[in-house]
Nucleic acid binder design. Structure first.
Lengths: 262, 262
DNA sequence: GCGTGGCCTTGATAAAGATCAACCCGGCGC
DNA sequence: GCGCCGGGTTGATCTTTATCAAGGCCACGC
């Protein structure tokens, strides 16, 4: 009763950590386009062998995007799936009066679009220019049946996204403004480390307003709290869109990071 | 590279809506125990045919629980998975100083325990007495490889859980106290309807403190806001732990339900 | 039947963060 | 070069919700 007729509910997905796979799915026209994709080792498709990759490639095309461009709109039919190969995307939900909650920021290797039901439950817009592999949802679902390792990988990521969302529930429900910002900066730091960086110099491609809408705060509060962290010598602003973590331990302590009591 | 060695990251899962399946997985000792399970049509295992069910049943045992009992503790090795067959469970995370965020309430048919990494990222405790099918995580993961329809079903549910979590992000990040409570009551109403009820008389098995920790509020605020809804004639309290929705439309309007602007 | 404890409600006050407002700064177009 | 504009910071005030406190209700045990 499942497996073939079931409407798969895909939402969006990030690498659970270091993906161990080999290659990815950017199709740029060369003889093995996915092999050249710079997001290969971070993507769901990273688990696929030559054959599977070719099949995935066959149903994908490349989509470039520029800042402000919309990839998906909340409420629209969810016909397309994306695998981000470069650039940064923000994903958000709106209330009728315009209040916005940013659900997440997507970076290369993240997967976008797999929504419960047949309509997007969120909007996705580009923050920077970039590119993504685009799939028809139907075709992707059909392929999933035939590539169980892809389905397993997707389940893994979806479960990981769920864990991340649950961490964010704790943040939004119970953390103070400074704890929220500290947690956010540590997340960015960890992401940078997973991508091979030092996790010390952090890029902030998003605006203060976007950070605010992600952390359930206002721009003013984000700005004030940033200043407090700066004043305490925990961070140093390099430019408007990059900073350095000077005291990682103090930042972690402020974040109340994942340290349940005895 | 995936599919067999991959560490599956199972978290917890609910029915995406009406599950169309046939039978479920409670093992009570009869000749086809799963067939008799009252949660069969709500559970992941609902998609399995006779053979698959028997195999699942072979690796499961029945676990009864009483109010206050702990099924999983945040930080402990995540060795067990549960499929709730009766009763209500609360799932929460803690900050070092004891602040609590309830991640969700689990009802019959919900799936619990599939955590990223090898430790539970949350605690799960019984609110009422009840029972669950218990599985070893390892055995379950092994079985998933052989029962692709089960894996598909699990992916579907995990994606659905993710959508629910994202709705909750919007609630915690951007909704006011009264909007949060209204949304919560509508969720319970919808759940009741999916379980075959009218969605009008709502059971509240949890305490005010638990509602507060789910909605990112305090007990006092939950109590005050409940009183306001009562005063406006939107709801009527029947007992401490059940109420009637008198004006569903008004409640939905207050909840700001999923109605993004034009 | 009475006392006790847990849970809930309501009131008074306090605090965190939102809102309103002014100003700064840097980039861009003209 | 100058003015404009979007984004960011900082300050003053206001609002929402938390916190502190008191009291009510109900179930349970003795």
């Amino acid at each position: 009763m499942a497996g073939k007729g079931s409407e798969l509910s895909l939402v969006w997905s990030r690498p659970p950590g270091f993906a161990a796979g080999a290659v990815a799915c950017e199709s740029s026209g060369g003889e093995s386009p996915c092999q050249l994709c710079s997001a290969h080792h971070l993507s769901v498709c990273g688990v696929l062998a030559e054959t599977g990759l070719r099949r995935l490639n066959a149903i994908s095309d490349q989509r470039e995007f520029t800042p402000g461009e919309t990839l998906a709109r909340e409420g629209d039919p969810a016909t397309q799936l994306f695998n981000i190969t470069s650039g940064v995307i923000r994903v958000h939900k709106l209330l009728p009066d315009g209040r916005r909650q940013i659900i997440g920021f997507l970076f290369p290797g993240d997967f976008l679009g797999l929504a419960t039901g047949d309509r997007y439950a969120f909007s996705a817009e580009a923050i920077t220019k970039g590119s993504a592999c685009r799939f028809s949802r139907k075709a992707y679902q059909r392929l999933l049946v035939e590539l169980p390792e892809l389905e397993t990988s997707l389940l893994e990521r979806t479960a990981n996204d769920l864990r991340i969302a649950q961490d964010q529930l704790l943040l939004l429900g119970r953390k103070t403004a400074i704890e929220r910002l500290a947690s956010f900066l540590l997340d960015l730091s960890n992401r940078d480390r997973r991508a091979g960086g030092e996790g010390v110099e952090i890029a902030l491609p998003m605006t203060r307003a976007e950070i605010a809408d992600y952390l359930g705060l206002t721009t003013e509060t984000v700005s004030r709290v940033t200043s407090r962290l700066k004043a305490r010598g925990v961070i140093r602003l390099l430019t408007m869109h990059s900073l350095r973590i000077v005291k990682p331990a103090e930042l972690a302590a402020l974040a109340g990071f994942e340290t349940p009591p005895a």
